[in-house]
């Protein structure tokens, strides 16, 4: 594969996961609004209002981003200017790399390389680091507090994600995401074979996306907006873009590792139907995540750490043992 192909594919995959992220974030907003007996952003705007308010609001997060990108950017005089500007861009670059690796319905050449799973986990680790950096250099007490909380939370949620992801790698006998996906089409999706690891990774992803029980770093009312407090205008727009990409990359990671990336047994992995099932499965995962988001209040940081050690990490370890046991009972099922 030459460089031109690589750049083209990265661009296509990044924009696809950006659009998916917009739809997923709309879904989170809509489901949480419906569960609070509100309406949420209109899916279909009532006819008399269409002239001034448009026909649909399914791209509401996109409008937010465009608006922010056209606004004035205020940089606090006490902040470290270069690092303050660089932090969201570092996270953006990490996410572009990550979304090039996560295959959308089987389409990604980078995912077939060995160790692509390790590369992906490292790239995803860069995002919270940039988040902490942005908060710490903004010279706002809220930013520093939020960054500190994120540093604590990161230790908690990365562990189940990493253990769970490596469990799937162990079951498939390969570190490449593509091969894990193919191994699932030959046997069964790992969501069925190893539900412990799947639940552990899902709980880790909820922490990573800062959904409700774990939105401690950017807890509104408590620490204003955490590390994002001092960001405005275009830089905030970049942060919102990062949020969209992170949502779709994390959801994609879960779908690829545990739901065979949308592949249907008997069908070719590269058929357009796979992309459709990938999106539907992603929407299901986000729906589950937003149910948890709406029905839970915010934990304190010490409660979160304790809970993460007590539940998802234990589940992940059980999943790891289960993968070993499965190897001896059904050697044909796993590689």
């Amino acid at each position: 594969m030459d460089l031109e192909d690589l750049i083209l594919q990265t661009a296509i995959l990044t924009s696809a996961s950006f659009i998916l992220g917009i739809i997923y974030n709309y879904e989170v907003r809509k489901i949480s609004a419906r569960l609070q007996s509100r309406k949420g952003p209109w899916l279909i705007v009532p006819r008399p209002l269409r002239k001034s308010l448009g026909t649909t609001r399914i791209f509401q997060p996109l409008y937010d981003i465009i608006k922010l990108l056209c606004k004035e950017t205020i940089i606090p005089s006490t902040a470290r200017k270069r690092l303050f500007i660089a932090a969201p861009l570092i996270a953006f670059l990490c996410l572009v790399g990550a979304s090039a690796i996560v295959p959308i319905g089987g389409y990604s050449d980078l995912s077939s390389f060995d160790l692509s799973l390790v590369a992906l986990l490292y790239l995803l680790l860069g995002v919270p680091f940039a988040f902490i950096l942005g908060g710490s250099v903004s010279s706002s007490p809220w930013g520093i507090l939020g960054g500190q909380r994120e540093a604590d939370l990161m230790l908690a949620y990365e562990t189940p994600i990493v253990i769970g992801a490596f469990t799937t790698a162990m079951m498939a006998g390969s570190m490449s995401i593509k091969k894990i996906q193919v191994a699932q089409t030959l046997s069964l999706p790992y969501l069925i074979l190893n539900p412990f690891a799947a639940v552990a990774v899902l709980l880790g992803i909820i922490g990573k996306l800062h959904l409700k029980p774990f939105d401690i770093p950017e807890a509104e009312v408590e620490v204003v907006a955490g590390p994002v407090t001092e960001y405005s205008g275009k830089l905030l727009g970049v942060i919102e873009i990062n949020k969209m990409l992170l949502t779709s990359v994390c959801t994609g990671l879960f779908v690829d590792l545990f739901m065979a990336g949308g592949a249907i047994p008997g069908l070719n992995l590269h058929s357009p139907v796979t992309v459709l099932t990938y999106v539907i499965e992603g929407l299901l995962v986000v729906a589950v995540a937003s149910l948890i988001h709406t029905s839970n209040p915010r934990f304190r940081i010490d409660q979160t750490l304790e809970w993460y050690v007590r539940t998802p990490i234990i589940l992940a370890v059980i999943g790891l043992c289960w993968a070993y046991i499965l190897r001896y009972i059904y050697p044909t099922l796993s590689g």
């Binding site: 907003r29 609004a33 509100r38 309406k39 949420g40 952003p41 209109w42 308010l53 609001r57 509401q60 409008y63 937010d64 205020i74 509104e220 009312v221 204003v224 907006a225 994002v228 407090t229 001092e230 960001y231 405005s232 905030l236």
Partner: peptide, 13 residues
């Protein structure tokens, strides 16, 4: 929020 209006608790946003 039907019309995309959100209450933010941060003047910078």
């Amino acid at each position: 929020e039907r019309m995309g209006i959100q209450l933010r608790n941060n003047p910078r946003h």
